[in-house]
Amino acid sequence: MNKSRVTSLAALAAVSAIVLAGCSIDEAPSADTPDTGASGEVDKILFDYPFTALPVYASLTQAVADYAETQGIEVVFTNDNMDLATQVSQLTTHLGSDIDAVVSFPMDNAAVQTVAKQFIDDGTLWITYGGDLDEQSSSLQFSFHDSGMTLGEDAGEWITENLDGDAKVLVLGDMSIQLGQERTTGILDGLEASAPDAEIIEQQAITPDEGLSVTSAVLAQHPDIDVVVATSGDAAAGAYQALIASGRPADDANTYVGGLDGNLTLYQEMKAGNFVRGVVTVKSSELAQAIVDFPVKLGKGEATERFDVPVYFVDADSADLDDYIVELGG
């Protein structure tokens, strides 16, 4: 694969929310593992999702709140405003409270690790969302590499079938955290496997604004970009807007845009028959259930070390495309 690595025009230590659709659970830790928090009934959960500016934030937190109410579980939410110092401060505020379990998406593992250990030492379960910490009770993960590879393979197969294997591909990645790194690597691995002659341009983008600005800048230098794939559905939506703004027809038969995680714009353009061709995602309703149910089961000893979730590939032919649109408020 020919790779052209371009200096990042925009980066944010963030990653979009991920939704899940099924799960498998790893073996329980051995009896001599360090203490990872108290076990017992979980009645109150702190959900710490710092990336409040991402479009998925409102729908995910509402889904968590709604489901928790049906289960008689109280959920408290932080408001970190996409700022690491605020995240640490918000978490620290709840130390020594009656919180039974924390589900937290760390913006920076090293900075959050100390707080996680304090919660665990205080007898509170700590579930790391979207990665792993050295000190944790367990983690919620989302098939990071496999989901990226699924998208990369689909894009590569499309390139082979529609462009005779010769394409210029913009990969909007995220190398700031574990989830983004594994997803980015998965996309590249999938492209390598299915379209080895494609030329790759790598950039960093997470939010819709970043996807728009980064893709616009790349298009100014490489107007012949054929494919944009992103580790974030939000960034992919921004890339779609950039391509349209550059004069690319929405139904262009030789363009492919795809992303990881659901995004309403992507789904709507996909349904309209435009060049959004693939989204790898899970359902926010099912993720909300895991955010509530997994800590409860962990406290009861019914769950084990890690909750790892597969994802679904969605395209214009998916029978449940309308369901994804409705979940995101469309």
Rank of each mutant, 00 (worst) to 15 (best):
G156I: 10
D146Y: 11
P196C: 06
G173A: 13
D189M: 11
A155R: 07
L140P: 01
S143H: 08
A195M: 02
A193M: 10
G186N: 01
D154I: 09
E157I: 07
E161K: 14
V169N: 01
E153F: 03
D197W: 03
A193P: 02
M175G: 13
L191V: 03
D146T: 15
G165A: 11
E153G: 08
A167N: 06
S194W: 01
E153V: 14
G190Y: 04
N162L: 06
D154W: 07
T160M: 09
V169G: 00
G180C: 09
V169W: 01
A193N: 12
E182K: 09
N162T: 15
S139F: 14
A198C: 06
P196T: 08
S137E: 12
S139T: 11
M175I: 12
L188D: 10
I201M: 09
G165K: 05
V171E: 01
L140W: 09
G180T: 10
R183P: 00
L140T: 02
D189Y: 11
S137K: 06
G190A: 03
G148Y: 06
Q136S: 08
G152C: 04
Q181M: 09
D154G: 10
V169P: 01
M175Q: 15
E192H: 10
Q141P: 00
S176R: 13
M175W: 14
H145P: 00
T160A: 13
S194K: 15
I187K: 03
S176A: 15
D146V: 14
L170M: 11
I201F: 04
G173L: 09
L151I: 06
I200N: 01
S138G: 08
L179E: 05
M175H: 09
T184P: 00
S194G: 05
I200Y: 00
D166C: 02
E199L: 10
L170G: 07
S138N: 09
K168N: 08
T184C: 01
E199W: 05
